[in-house]
């Protein structure tokens, strides 16, 4: 069993490296220096320290070719790991924080404890040490094979503000319409401007996020709203 400290030491060595959405990292290559996708970064660090694939498909495929993805992280968390709350994960060095892909893309970050993270964040920021606060996470996971010490009580993470995203039923209202109008003004077609946050709107949001070097998840929170010139809640 490896320790959380080993995982974090390895992850920190890669701070400052390049981010690229969807870039595959050869998990068995200890010399890989990016570019990194968020889920690939977490899966690579886990493989390098535990020798096990997590958050990848095919599950038993060639470690150098398997694809890591936030959706697979979510599925493996439930099937193979131990799901914990966001507050617990943020307080636990070596735990993993997961934002599920509501549309197509979610996010994965390694918790450094104390509300800090190490993650492949975005094209604009690359691999960084960041914070979990004020961001949307669905849950955390303890990955088998990593020895972590979960604190007796969670460290509550300040919740994000309003985040528009793909949900069933769809999020609806004037705020969604304003986002769609801003997307259209910026030249990113959101489909019909109908005040419903659907797949086309999320795709246009992802396109804006990519163009602006933001974290690409198809969700509209304060950073994306500001990039679109919107006043936000």
């Amino acid at each position: 069993m490896t320790t959380a400290a080993s995982l974090l030491r390895l992850a920190r060595k890669h701070v400052g490296e390049e981010y690229q959405l969807g870039a595959i990292a050869p998990k068995a290559n200890p010399d890989w220096r990016g570019p990194w996708d968020c889920a690939e970064f977490a899966s690579w660090c886990v493989y390098q320290t535990t020798g096990k694939l997590f958050g990848c498909r095919p599950r038993n495929g060639d470690p150098d070719r398997v694809d890591a993805y936030s959706g697979y992280w979510g599925a493996d968390a439930r099937a193979l790991g131990k799901v914990i709350s966001v507050g617990q994960a943020a307080a636990t060095p070596g735990a993993i924080l997961i934002r599920l892909p509501g549309g197509a893309i979610g996010h994965v970050a390694i918790s450094a404890g104390g509300g800090k993270t190490i993650e492949a964040h975005s094209r604009g920021k690359g691999v960084i040490e960041a914070g979990a606060a004020g961001r949307r996470w669905d849950f955390g996971v303890l990955v088998p094979g990593i020895d972590v010490s979960v604190p007796e009580v969670p460290a509550p993470v300040p919740a994000p503000g309003i985040v528009l995203r793909i949900k069933r039923p769809r999020m609806k209202g004037r705020l969604v319409r304003e986002v769609q109008q801003a997307l259209a003004r910026a030249g990113f077609s959101p489909g019909p401007i109908d005040g419903e946050y659907g797949g086309q709107t999320a795709a246009a949001v992802r396109a804006v996020q990519m163009a602006k070097g933001l974290s690409v998840d198809g969700e509209v929170g304060p950073n994306t709203a500001i990039a679109l010139g919107l006043r936000w809640y």
């Binding site: 309003i162 949900k167 039923p169 999020m171 609806k172 209202g173 004037r174 705020l175 969604v176 809640y233």
Partner: peptide
């Protein structure tokens, strides 16, 4: 957001 009428009731409940 609700008070401003910026999101509908179903979304708020969700």
């Amino acid at each position: 957001v609700w008070a401003d009428g910026a999101l509908d009731e179903e979304t708020l409940e969700q």
